[in-house]
Design a protein around this nucleic acid. Structure first.
Lengths: 182, 182
DNA sequence: CGCAACATGTAAGCGGTTACATGATTAC
DNA sequence: GTAATCATGTAACCGCTTACATGTTGCG
């Protein structure tokens, strides 16, 4: 399941342009499978060359032609094959946790700054999940609900953990930075 | 904070070989910052060439010489600089959630297989965290406790979510795969 | 007899990120 | 006027993954 496969999946919901897909990668997929134009446009070009999608060019004035992609039968087959993988990955890469691991080498100010930045980011996610629920949960598939609920559950847990334990590294009255440096 | 910086951080705890560091990347860092030999050995070579670590070769019989690295003063300075970053990343990349998003295109069997694999993996993590706590929490720094607690909190939340909602995608009596393919 | 642990590394490749390049329209 | 939105793409780069290459010791 790479960017190409996800594009294919999104296109089962109806035709769309690269620009449209980007918005979905940012919003619904943002917290677990982000992708930028540099991944999406080449992915669509590649899918088109392989016959997994059709491309229809819609002329526009003052803007580049809008390229609208539609999934083909071969594309559907390919997607279903991609969905056969029995043990898909779930990876975290966190500079944040790596740095916190070495909190004893940092100043209290540095730690506080980082923790408060994190809190803000997770609050934004929480807001996003709330918006999803307020909005259009009605015509969502069970899978979409599951993924949204998953994100909300994880983010809620993290947010609570930061609130409860975010100050445990700054509570001490010693600044270990000098000791470590010297 | 890349692999090189993390190696530097690990070396503040005492000298070690690439092989030693790999074990730490697998165990304590495994759930949020994994790295293999293909990253670690080049990282150490690079750090050595830049003067951030010293290398001492310990001859051994029947095995390649053990190369033991020690952080230098320049290395400590470099590490402290790396730790100044005010907003380190925390990224999730999940084929798992991407696939679940398209659960309506999968069979119940496929979904069940994936969910049960996930449960097993998260149970292993939970066991690992429990082992950490049983073992040597005594001489841990606050940062290490924080990171371990973070992992435990997140994993616990996920595990509970899977238990409660893992079957919501298979509850329906329709298999949408055929409809999607046809 | 086979597997895990010990121990080091290289090289190709893959996939994603970032910066670059272009430019009109609309809303504040 | 200036920022955001619409709209497409390329190319260089970066960093990590995977496979390859080699060989001993010790345990069950």
């Amino acid at each position: 399941m790479d960017v190409k496969a996800v594009c294919l999946g999104m296109l089962t919901d109806g035709e769309a342009s690269g620009y449209d897909l980007k918005k979905q990668f940012e919003s619904t997929f943002g917290h677990f499978f982000a992708a930028g134009y540099g991944s999406i446009y080449p992915a669509l070009a590649s899918l088109a060359s392989e016959g997994y999608v059709d491309c229809r060019e819609v002329p526009q004035e003052g803007k580049p032609d809008r390229k609208v992609y539609r999934i083909t039968d071969a594309g559907r087959t390919r997607l279903l094959e991609a969905l056969e993988k029995p043990d898909p990955s779930h990876k975290v890469r966190s500079e944040f946790l790596a740095m916190m691991y070495f909190a004893h080498l940092m100043t209290r100010e540095q730690i506080d700054t980082i923790i408060s930045h994190r809190k803000q980011e997770f609050d934004q996610y929480l807001k996003m999940f709330a918006d999803f629920e307020a909005d259009g949960l009605k015509d969502w598939t069970p899978g979409m609900r599951f993924v949204c609920g998953f994100g909300k559950a994880v983010t809620t847990a993290i947010r609570a953990y930061l609130e409860e334990h975010g100050d445990t590294m700054t509570a001490k009255d010693t600044d270990n930075r000098k000791a470590a440096a010297g």
